[in-house]
Computed example of a mutant assay.
Amino acid sequence: MRLDILNHGYGTGTKLLFTVIRLVSRHPVPDAAKLVFYRPDFYGDRAKAFTHEAMRGPSDWSVGDRELMAAYVSQVNGSAFCVAAHSATAKLAYQDAPQVTAVLDDLDSAPVAEPLRATLRMLGKLTREGTVGADDMRDVLAAGASPRQVEDALAVCAAFNVTGRLADAFGFGLLTPEDFEAGAKYLLKRGYR
C-alpha cells in the first residue's frame, strides 16, 4: 500500500529541489530520494551517510560488487524497486549486464569469483533467516573473502535490508527502465549523498 506521505509533507525548499531535479534530469524523482528528504533529521541524513559509506567508502569490493550485493539482498527480500535500481547500477558499474542477470537468476552457476559467490550466499541466508553462524563465516573466509570484505558486505546487507523494507512499506513506485538507468548513472557519479 502506497503511503501518501511521499507525495506531500515537504518544505518549500525541498519541493523546489524536486522540481529542478525533474526539469534537469527529465526523469521523476524516485521514491527512495523522496523518503530521505522526508524528516531528514530522523532518518534521511543518517541513512544517506551510512549507505554512502557502505556503497562508496573504502573497500576491497568494487562498486559493482556492492551494487550487486544490494540487488541480491533486495531480491531475497522481494523488493522490486530496489532490485531494479541496484541491478541497473551494478550492470552499469560492471559494464556487464549478463553477469548481473546470471547472478540474480542462479547464483550457483553465475560467472562470478568464489569469494563474491560465497559472500552473496551468506548475505542471502542472513536476509532470509535473520542469522548466520560461525560456520557460515568460515565458508566465506575459506572461499577467499577477507574479514574486512565480510564486514563491508554486512554493511551493504544492513543498508539494503532497511531500505528494501522501507521501499515495500511505503509502496515505492517502479520506474521505467530508462528512469532506472538514469538513476544508476547518478548513483555511480554521486553516490548516496
Rank of each mutant, 00 (worst) to 15 (best):
M55G: 06
M55Q: 12
R56N: 03
R56K: 13
R56L: 13
G57V: 07
P58E: 15
P58F: 15
P58C: 12
W61Y: 09
S62A: 04
S62L: 05
V63P: 13
V63G: 12
G64W: 02
G64V: 08
R66E: 15
R66V: 11
E67V: 04
E67M: 12
L68S: 05
L68P: 10
M69V: 13
M69G: 13
M69C: 14
A70Q: 10
A71W: 14
A71M: 14
A71V: 04
Y72N: 07
V73C: 02
V73Y: 08
S74W: 09
S74A: 14
S74G: 09
V76W: 11
N77E: 15
N77T: 09
N77G: 15
N77K: 12
G78P: 14
G78K: 14
G78Y: 15
S79V: 02
A80N: 01
A80S: 13
F81P: 02
F81H: 10
V83P: 11
V83I: 06
A84C: 05
A84S: 13
H86T: 07
S87V: 02
T89K: 03
T89V: 06
A90D: 03
A90K: 11
K91M: 08
K91H: 01
L92C: 13
A93V: 01
Q95N: 13
D96A: 10
A97V: 09
P98C: 00
Q99I: 13
Q99W: 00
A102W: 03
A102E: 11
V103M: 01
L104S: 02
D105L: 02
D105F: 04
D108R: 07
D108H: 07
S109R: 06
S109D: 02
A110W: 00
P111N: 10
V112L: 06
V112D: 09
A113F: 05
A113Q: 13
E114Q: 04
E114F: 00
E114N: 03
P115C: 11
P115E: 11
A118L: 01
A118P: 06
A118H: 08
T119D: 02
T119F: 04
T119R: 02
L120R: 08
R121G: 07
M122I: 00
M122V: 03
L123V: 03
L123S: 04
L123K: 00
L123W: 00
K125D: 03
T127G: 00
T127F: 15
T127Y: 10
T127E: 07
R128S: 10
R128T: 08
E129K: 09
G130A: 07
G130H: 04
V132A: 05
V132P: 00
V132S: 08
A134H: 11
D135K: 03
M137L: 11
D139Q: 12
V140D: 12
L141Q: 01
L141R: 01
A142Y: 06
A143K: 04
A143C: 07
G144L: 11
G144T: 13
A145K: 07
A145V: 12
R148E: 14
Q149A: 10
V150G: 14
E151G: 15
D152L: 05
A153Y: 03
A155H: 08
A158H: 14
A159I: 09
A159H: 05
F160T: 01
F160Q: 03
V162W: 10
V162Q: 08
G164D: 04
G164T: 00
R165D: 08
G171V: 13
G173K: 12
L175H: 07
T176L: 06
T176I: 10
P177I: 06
P177S: 05
D179I: 03
D179V: 07
F180H: 12
F180Y: 14
F180L: 11
A182C: 05
